[in-house]
Amino acid sequence: MKQIILSKWRLFAAFTGSLLLSSCALLQDVTQIQAPRVSFEDVRYTGISFDAIDFAVDVNIHNYNPVSINFSGFDYQFDINGNSFLTGQQDYAFSIASMDRTTVQIPVSINFQDLYNTVSSLLTEDQASYRMAGGVSFDVPVLGQLRIPFSKSGKFPAVKLPDISVNSLRVTRLDISGADIALNLSIANPNAFELLLNRIDYALQINGRNWIQGVGEQQTRIAQNSSAPISLGMSLDFVQVGLTLYQILSGQNQVNYQLQGSLDVGSSLPLLQQATIPLNRSGVLNISR
C-alpha cells in the first residue's frame, strides 16, 4: 500500500515538475517579447509622367520574438512646401513568423494638376520640398498594439507640360497645281530638365475644312527653361483638296485654324524616357508669303 502511494507521489511530483518547467519556459518566452526591429528606406521614385509622380517607402521588418506577431497596417501624411497635401491609411493585416523578416512598401501618388491647384507657387518653381511622416502598426503578444513612427524628407521635380504655340503659316510655293507651306510652331519647356521632341502627329483644319494630315519626325532638343521653333513642312495638291485653298492662300492674310494630334517626347529624367502629349490648338493664324 505504501509503495502504491509512493508511486503516486512520484508521478505527481514528475507532473508538477514538468508543469513548472513548462511555465518557466513560457515565462521566459514572455519576458523576451519585444517590439519588432523596423528600418525605413529612403523615399524613392517609382514612376514619373507629365500627369503624376509616384513614390514608395520600403519598410524592412524583422521579428526577433520567439512567437509570431501581426502586422496591422500603415498611415502617413505627405506635406509639400510646408502645406498638408495628402494623407493615407491602409489596414493590411498579415502574420510575421518568429525570427522571420519581411518588407512592406508604402506607395504614394501625387497628381501634378491637383498639386498646382493646391500649391500654386510651384507653377514657377523647378522643385518641390516634401516631408512624409507616418507609422507602421503591429499587434504583438503581451505588448499589444504598437505603432512605430517614421519621417522622411527631400525634393522632387515639379513636372509641367510643355507649352505649344502656333505662330504663323508661311507659303513658300504657290501655283495653280498646288502649294508648299510651312506651319511654324514654338514649344516652350518650363521644366528644369531637357526635353527631346521625337515626333509630331498632326491634322490641320483651315476655315473649318480639312487640309492635311501628317507626321513630323525631326528630333529637336529643347533645353531646360527654354523654347525651340518647330516648322512643319506640308505640300498641298489642289487637284485633291480643291481650288478653294488656292483662293485662301493667294488672297487672305488671316485664317481660322484647328491643329490636333499628339507629340511623342522624351526627357533627361531617367524615369521619363517616353511620353505622349495631346495636341489641340485653335485660333486665328496669320499667312505670310
Rank of each mutant, 00 (worst) to 15 (best):
V239C: 07
I230D: 00
N191I: 06
Q205C: 10
A93W: 10
T118K: 12
W9M: 13
S49D: 04
I5V: 12
L174Y: 07
A35W: 06
S151R: 13
Y92G: 01
W211E: 05
Q32T: 11
K160R: 14
Q258R: 15
L161R: 14
I53D: 03
Y116D: 03
D163E: 15
P190S: 02
L196P: 03
F12V: 14
Q224V: 02
Q3K: 12
I230M: 13
L122H: 04
S84H: 11
V30M: 15
I206H: 04
R37Q: 14
D51S: 11
Q28M: 09
V30E: 07
Y64N: 11
G261N: 04
F85E: 00
Q254W: 05
Y130M: 05
S153T: 09
L263S: 01
V59I: 13
Q127N: 14
P278A: 05
A223K: 09
Q224G: 13
L185W: 01
L27N: 12
I164Y: 07
L169A: 08
S231L: 02
P141R: 02
L243N: 07
G47K: 13
F12E: 05
V140W: 03
N60D: 13
K2C: 12
Q224L: 14
N63G: 02
G154R: 02
S121Q: 10
S23G: 13
I181Q: 01
M1L: 12
G261Q: 01
K155R: 12
A275W: 09
A14G: 03
Q32Y: 09
S153P: 07
V255H: 03
N253T: 12
V241E: 09
L197C: 05
R44H: 06
Q224H: 10
S95T: 15
